[in-house]
């Protein structure tokens, strides 16, 4: 593999990893703070992708579609938390798995009713439609770089929110002792709602910005969900920074696996998971 091919695969791997992080971070946050296993998390990615497609068709502007989509998915997150997820906090994981699996079926059915079962493509926004030429016959699409940049900005924003703000302190405190947080006069229910809505919006945003490169199709949430659970398990359940590291590792292993050992590419991610878990059964980072 020459340098430019390597560079392209490296950038692809990082971009895929960062995108996975956006989805997985919500999954691991909701588990770490509220203790919820949310199987329907992949559906939010799917909903985001379909929204980007539908809204871009309606408005004719992808950027506007994404902004609108973010607002709508935050509202969706708030409603879902208040109506469904709130009742799961004190329950056993079995109930959580049952209800959130049920929600996957509901979301897929609703998707079929509202948007149909066809595969759709979403045009790359004109602003980012160019490619950067690398050699005579190799070039790299600007849109993929833009995806990576957006993911890095969102990850940075999340870092600042969680580590540097009082709300972030309350969120972290809630993960370790929610009773004490309430006893200090803080409305933990509101914090849970915010964290959940944040998780939904992050997953949906990932779906939206990925739509132009991955297309939009039924059951796309299921694929993402499985790989996100691999990310969360490798990173250490509940650890956002573990998820970042794990997502980048998976992005690179998966991308280079497809190039170097194409016959076994589907296995590479799971081999990585097995190796990490043999070395560190609790994942790279402990919960916290």
């Amino acid at each position: 593999m020459d340098f430019y091919s390597f560079l392209i695969q490296l950038l692809n791997g990082l971009q895929y990893g960062l995108l996975l992080f956006l989805v997985a971070s919500g999954l691991t946050l909701v588990f770490g703070i509220m203790g919820i296993i949310n199987l329907a998390h992949g559906s939010f990615y799917m909903i985001g992708a379909y929204m980007a497609w539908a809204l871009a068709e309606q408005t004719g502007n992808f950027g506007l579609a994404v902004l609108l989509g973010i607002v709508l998915t935050v509202i969706l997150g708030i409603l879902l938390e208040a109506v469904f997820y709130r009742h799961l906090y004190k329950r056993d994981h079995l109930y959580q798995v049952l209800m959130t699996y049920g929600l996957i079926l509901v979301f897929e059915e609703l998707r079929s009713i509202i948007w149909g079962d066809d595969v759709h493509g979403v045009a790359v926004p004109a602003l980012f439609s160019a490619s950067i030429p690398l050699t005579d016959n190799l070039s790299y699409p600007v849109y993929r770089l833009a995806i990576s940049a957006v993911c890095v900005l969102l990850a940075l924003g999340m870092y600042l929110l969680i580590q540097r703000t009082r709300l972030g302190m309350m969120i972290r405190a809630g993960a370790s002792n929610n009773e004490m947080v309430q006893a200090l006069g803080i409305n933990i229910k509101l914090i849970y709602t915010l964290v959940f809505a944040l998780g939904v919006a992050l997953a949906a945003t990932a779906g939206m910005i990925a739509a132009p490169i991955s297309s939009v199709f039924p059951n796309m949430g299921g694929q993402v969900l499985i790989i996100c659970f691999v990310v969360v398990v490798i990173g250490g359940i509940g650890s956002v920074w573990g998820a970042l590291l794990a997502a980048l590792m998976i992005g690179l292993v998966d991308t280079f696996g497809k190039v170097l050992v194409p016959d076994y590419a589907g296995l590479s991610v799971y081999v990585l998971m097995a190796v990490v878990l043999l070395w560190r059964p609790e994942g790279l980072f402990k919960r916290g």
């Binding site: 009082r166 302190m169 309350m170 972290r172 405190a173 993960a175 370790s176 002792n177 009773e179 004490m180 006893a183 200090l184 803080i186 916290g288």
Partner: peptide
């Protein structure tokens, strides 16, 4: 009921 995952400063400020 100290929050062990927060620093002393954060325990106070939150």
């Amino acid at each position: 009921g100290i929050f062990p995952n927060l620093s002393v400063k954060e325990n106070l400020l939150m």
